[in-house]
């Protein structure tokens, strides 16, 4: 990577929206990221896959500065967020929506209030406008009837969709999904994948980053797939590249087999 401010993604040919440059992160003696280089193209769906515990969530949390790298830099739209002040970083965060692994809805608020939360905090919209937008967004994720329920009354799949609605309500430039389909039954998982693809299709400017350990699921929705292993990117390419790869690591991951370079 020569100039991190102007990078073109080699896989899609798109301009890079997010660039990780040699990122290291350890918790105590435990090294999670060991020189991560990653390019997320603008306006596309990029999927990062890797085994549970390889640091996918840690990777995604670095983008918004929820975690700080020990070494390395992270550029969002060409600006190094690791060198920003708290106030600047907060501004950058407003451009993001994040769907957390377990939704991370606020237990004490209803579905409606959860989805309205970002608008109430950051917009000057009237009550009626907020209500309109929230209802519209809930309808989009298929949850019109649930607005007065509390998160504890929802199933895992419904919670994730509320999380998506909350992430989308502020019209983000970047949408981050942390394991959107994990813990869902196959039908709900397929519905969630379709929702991710639809969301992208409806917002062509949107840059989506999906974290998953399910290679098969991401083959259908990704424009670019990045495979994480031992804290580094070991493969990147289009879904076809991964389908046709005969690399042992990729095959093992695709087939979920016990034999191969990855040990349990």
């Amino acid at each position: 990577m020569t100039d991190p401010h102007h990078v073109v993604d080699p896989v899609t040919g798109e301009e890079a929206a997010i660039v990780y440059e040699g990122v290291y992160k350890a918790f105590g003696d435990f090294e999670v990221l060991r020189g991560l280089d990653l390019v997320v193209p603008r306006g596309r769906i990029t999927c990062v896959i890797g085994r549970s515990g390889t640091g996918k969530s840690v990777t995604i949390k670095h983008i918004m500065g929820l975690l700080r790298p020990d070494k390395g830099r992270i550029f969002v739209s060409g600006r190094d967020i690791t060198a920003m002040s708290d106030r600047e970083r907060r501004k950058v965060r407003l451009k993001f929506g994040m769907v957390f692994q377990n939704a991370a809805l606020f237990d004490s608020l209803t579905v409606f209030d959860n989805v309205a939360f970002p608008l109430r905090e950051h917009s000057k919209l009237s009550k009626a406008e907020i209500a309109d937008r929230v209802q519209h967004m809930l309808a989009q994720v298929g949850l019109s009837g649930a607005s007065s329920k509390f998160p504890s009354e929802l199933s895992g799949g419904m919670r994730k969709r509320v999380g998506l609605a909350r992430a989308l309500i502020g019209n983000p430039e970047f949408l981050l999904y942390d394991e959107p389909t994990t813990g869902l039954d196959p039908i709900l998982a397929a519905a969630m994948d379709a929702l991710i693809a639809d969301t992208q299709a409806a917002n062509p400017e949107l840059t989506s980053l999906v974290i998953s350990h399910d290679m098969k699921a991401v083959l259908g929705i990704a424009d670019k797939i990045v495979m994480l292993y031992e804290g580094r990117v070991v493969h990147e390419g289009t879904p076809d590249y991964f389908r046709n790869s005969d690399d042992a690591l990729v095959r093992q991951f695709l087939e979920g087999s016990l034999d191969g370079p990855m040990k349990v």
Binding site: M64, L66, R93, M98, F100, P118
Partner: peptide, 18 residues
């Protein structure tokens, strides 16, 4: 504590709320 471990505190930060 339960907001911390269920990532609700992270979610607040992610939504640019202190």
């Amino acid at each position: 504590g339960s907001m911390r471990v269920s990532e609700q505190i992270d979610a607040l930060e992610a939504m640019a709320v202190d």
